[in-house]
């Protein structure tokens, strides 16, 4: 499946060429190897899942992609160019947005302000212009508000627009966090357990949003998720990790029938 060119998914969507490629990534914390020699790619327009048992290194992998961790070995290629070691905010400027396993919203701000923050890479009025307000700052503020309102519409959170985030229930917070990431209009969207702690209905909503985002905006999505049903339904290709190593890679069906993966999840008899 990992041919350089794109492919066509089972449901008939065209997937483009490679957007991001991880080449032989190794990440160590002191003596502990979190990730060992992992390579995989993410193609334009696909939904790519990373799964694995607890402690497999999935979140570490996401943190490598978003620039929190710099791997000791290996290369990260983005849009056909090798990416030098970067700070997280520089990665964001390149067009990669993410959500967190534990919600990382700005609790003291309203929903609108939270989502507007996602637009910051699209606004470049200087501090003096903002202090004067009239002119460029106000114009940018309005233009970007329009984009943000589209995202708010899309995720159906109009009614809580002006509510302080701290007052929202968990499920809505997750949605606002997705809205903030989407507002950045990223090329690559990283979702760290978007359904964690949700009930079936909320999971269905979130799945629908993820599929819609991919479908309407053509956003490439990489997600970590523990709910196998969701993963198998949503994703085009799956990477399976265990103890920091890659043990499987392919379509959901291929992965499901992979003996290593079955062993990792169900355990294997030692005799």
């Amino acid at each position: 499946m990992s041919n350089e060119e794109g492919y066509v998914t089972a449901d008939g969507r065209k997937i483009g060429g490679t957007l991001m490629e991880m080449k032989n990534i190794t990440l160590r914390f002191g003596g502990v190897k979190a990730i060992t020699d992992i390579s995989f790619d993410i193609k334009e327009g696909e939904i790519r899942a990373i799964i694995g048992p607890n402690g497999a290194g999935k979140s570490s992998m996401l943190n490598v992609i978003s620039g929190f961790y710099v791997p000791q070995e290996g290369e990260v290629w983005f849009k056909g160019a090798k990416r030098p070691p970067m700070k997280p905010y520089q990665v964001a400027q390149q067009g990669i947005a993410r959500t967190f396993q534990n919600i990382a919203l700005f609790e003291g701000m309203s929903v609108l302000d939270n989502v507007m923050t996602g637009r910051l890479n699209h606004m470049n009025a200087g501090m003096f212009q903002q202090a004067i307000w009239k002119g460029k700052a106000e114009r940018e503020e309005v233009e970007n508000r329009e984009v943000v309102e589209k995202v708010i519409d899309f995720l159906e959170i109009q009614s809580i627009r002006k509510t302080p985030v701290a007052r929202l229930p968990y499920g809505l917070k997750k949605r606002v966090e997705l809205a903030r990431a989407l507002a950045a209009e990223p090329m690559l969207l990283l979702l760290d357990e978007p359904m964690a702690g949700m009930n079936v209905e909320e999971k269905e909503d979130m799945s629908r949003f993820i599929l819609d985002v991919n479908d309407e905006f053509g956003t490439t999505i990489a997600l970590i998720e523990h709910d196998m049903g969701v993963v198998m339904d949503l994703s085009d290709r799956v990477v399976v990790m265990d103890y920091g190593k890659k043990i499987g890679d392919g379509t959901p069906d291929e992965v499901r029938n992979n003996q290593d993966v079955i062993d990792a999840y169900l355990g294997v008899a030692h005799d």
Binding site: S66, F68, K87, P88, Y89, A92, Q93, A97, R98, F100, A104, L105, F106, E107, G108, M109, T117, G118, L120, N121, R180, A181, A184
Partner: peptide, 13 residues
Amino acid sequence: RDMDIAAEIIGVD
């Protein structure tokens, strides 16, 4: 102020 890590991840220097 609210969460510096999340701020950095969405592009605040």
